[in-house]
């Protein structure tokens, strides 16, 4: 680990920001076309972020400010561990456990900051967000643990490398279709897209955790959202869609997957939080257990 690693990490952060924000902008356009609108400019998301940064903002105390910075820091620290295709800023630390623990730092920082604002909507939003996290994490972790058992690796690039070379049918998504479906449902929950977006529901709880954020704080939250989206989608691309032999391949897969999730989000209404938890603990958890049992006892698909 030398100085070049840190330069790579910085470049990776810049790249992720530009890439993911563009993808978000394009997806806003896609969503608009889905609703038969013309839609915003593709770089609208950049304008929104910079505009939020250019405004003044108010503070609600030390916890409020520190929580945002902690969340953003945690998420950025996670982002630099994510490999983009074969490119890695730091070798051998792209472990799924490290990623999910560091991701939790971001989530908890966010929760801390939102509670620090003292607004009741924020508290409701945070409690819903954490409940939602608990709901999707259980089936997802069952799935991941059985994959780790099967492939004897827990690194993202390791998973990706094992799938490459056998074409599309070598992807885990096709070798373990049940697990693939569970992963996509969990990804929808991780991204906070409909139907699992009850924690930001703008019309009911005034955008939940974000209710008291304005100006620069809101700009940082937008950044945070872009980075965490990148992490979550990348995990799924690496584990289930074979990562990428080249960075370009990874980016194409990533863009297609994210757009797909967004289109699904565009046609759904939203679950109440208790319905979401019940759903996760019924269908995806059962499917994840079946997939895990298949992997452990029959080895079907592991080859």
């Amino acid at each position: 680990m030398n100085i070049m690693n840190f330069i790579y990490a910085f470049l990776l952060l810049v790249f992720v920001f530009l890439f993911q924000t563009s993808i978000t902008g394009i997806n806003r356009k896609v969503m608009a076309r889905l609703q038969r609108r013309r839609g915003p400019k593709w770089y609208q998301q950049f304008i929104d972020i910079f505009k939020a940064m250019s405004k003044s903002s108010t503070t609600h105390g030390w916890i409020f400010d520190f929580g945002v910075i902690m969340a953003l820091g945690g998420i950025m620290a996670t982002t630099i561990l994510i490999p983009i295709g074969p490119f890695k800023a730091f070798a051998d630390v792209d472990n799924i456990f490290i990623v999910s623990y560091l991701l939790a730092v971001g989530m908890l920082g966010m929760a801390m900051s939102a509670s620090g604002s003292g607004n009741p909507w924020a508290s409701i939003g945070v409690s819903r967000a954490l409940t939602n996290m608990l709901a999707y994490d259980v089936p997802f972790m069952v799935l991941i643990v059985s994959f780790i058992y099967a492939f004897k690796t827990s690194s993202l690039s390791g998973f990706a490398a094992l799938q490459q070379g056998a074409g599309i049918l070598g992807w885990n998504f096709f070798r373990f279709p049940l697990g693939g479906i569970v992963a996509l449902i969990c990804l929808q929950g991780m991204l906070g897209k409909k139907p699992f977006d009850s924690f930001i529901a703008p019309a009911e709880i005034a955008s939940g955790p974000m209710v008291e954020y304005g100006g620069r704080h809101l700009g940082m939250l937008f950044l945070l959202h872009e980075f965490s989206t990148f992490i979550e989608v990348s995990i799924i691309v690496h584990i289930f869609f074979g990562g990428g032999a080249t960075p370009l391949e990874f980016m194409v897969k990533y863009a297609l997957l994210y757009t797909f999730m967004n289109i699904i989000s565009g046609v759904f209404p939203r679950f109440k939080i208790d319905q979401a938890v019940k759903f996760y603990y019924k269908v995806p958890l059962a499917l994840a257990f079946i997939q895990g049992l298949i992997i452990i006892f029959t080895g079907l698909g592991v080859s």
């Binding site: 806003r28 608009a32 609703q35 038969r36 609108r37 013309r38 839609g39 915003p40 400019k41 609208q44 304008i47 929104d48 505009k51 405004k55 108010t58 703008p202 019309a203 005034a206 955008s207 974000m210 209710v211 008291e212 954020y213 304005g214 809101l218």
Partner: peptide, 22 residues
């Protein structure tokens, strides 16, 4: 806001709280 006039093409959109709004 919706399909016919679509104010989002000007970059406009509704926000939930006064803190976020311009």
């Amino acid at each position: 806001m919706t399909s016919r006039f679509d104010m989002e093409r000007l970059g406009m959109g509704p926000m939930a709280t006064p803190r976020q709004a311009d």
